[in-house]
């Protein structure tokens, strides 16, 4: 199942994450090449966000996470990360320019942001068609706009691995397909590896090269159509597999590692 890691890839083997006695990730394996979009789907609480945060280096783990960049082993590749949601009040006085500049420069944004940095922020945002939002408060943006702003930040400077968490939450259908299209273009243009966590399994299946179904461990892996038409899953969940988040409620994913066997 795991391909050879040649020139440029991220490879995860036997990854285990525990919080106290709780097993969050159990013997997870995953492999993604540069220029490839890997969709990670699974019920709520399956450990999808934990997987991304572990790859980011934020959470202690057991197992192997290896990065190979341009043929060389790399301990710390440049990782672009788009979080699931931001924790701020609607009234937070923080402009899009503040957010971008605080992420890409050392110039303190509580002092006035100078013109040069503003121009730079605008250029970065314009690549994602959100340059006009520069002076808006982040609380005034729609879900899709905020997501593109965060993607613009994640792509600066060019990352070697792009992690997108819950790409579908808070974004309407139109915004979401636009977002997938942008991610698709980025992958083609920059030849980066993309790991994308989503609940929108039908929408993403047109864009992802591969898909893994995660519930603490990898339950199924393959091309999106293969995963979605996996006989075992189909039998268990029926044909109306529109929102995978409902599956956890049905208690059908409780198998964990057993489900994989």
């Amino acid at each position: 199942m795991i391909n050879a890691c040649d020139h440029c890839c991220t490879k995860i083997n036997n990854l285990n994450v525990r919080f106290g006695d709780d097993v969050i990730l159990d013997n997870v394996y995953l492999h993604v090449n540069c220029g490839e979009v890997l969709a990670v789907v699974g019920p709520n609480g399956a450990g999808k966000t934990t997987l991304l945060r572990t790859i980011l280096g934020e959470i202690p783990y057991q197992g192997i996470i290896k990065f190979r960049i341009s043929g060389h082993e790399s301990v710390k590749p440049r990782i672009g990360y788009v979080p699931q949601r931001l924790q701020f009040d609607i009234g937070l006085p923080l402009s899009v320019a503040d957010l971008v500049v605080s992420a890409i420069s050392r110039h303190p944004v509580w002092l006035r942001v100078n013109k040069k940095l503003l121009e730079k922020a605008k250029d970065i945002l314009s690549l994602f068609s959100v340059g006009h939002l520069l002076k808006r408060r982040i609380g005034d943006l729609s879900g899709g706009e905020l997501q593109r702003v965060l993607l613009a930040i994640a792509m600066t400077p060019d990352p070697e691995l792009l992690l997108l968490d819950e790409a579908g939450s808070g974004v309407d259908v139109k915004g979401l397909s636009l977002f997938y299209q942008i991610v698709n273009d980025l992958r083609n243009k920059h030849h980066i590896a993309v790991i994308l966590v989503t609940h929108d399994i039908t929408g993403i299946s047109n864009y992802a090269d591969r898909m893994i179904l995660l519930n603490r461990s990898v339950i199924a892996e393959g091309q999106p159509k293969e995963v979605l038409s996996n006989e075992k899953l189909k039998k268990a969940f029926g044909p109306s597999l529109l929102d995978i988040s409902c599956l956890s409620d049905a208690g059908l994913f409780k198998g964990g590692k057993n489900g994989h066997n």
């Binding site: 980011l56 934020e58 990782i79 990360y81 979080p83 949601r85 931001l86 924790q87 923080l94 994640a154």
Partner: peptide, 9 residues
Amino acid sequence: SINSSLAHS
């Protein structure tokens, strides 16, 4: 304050 994982990245 906005997102610790984003800050970490």
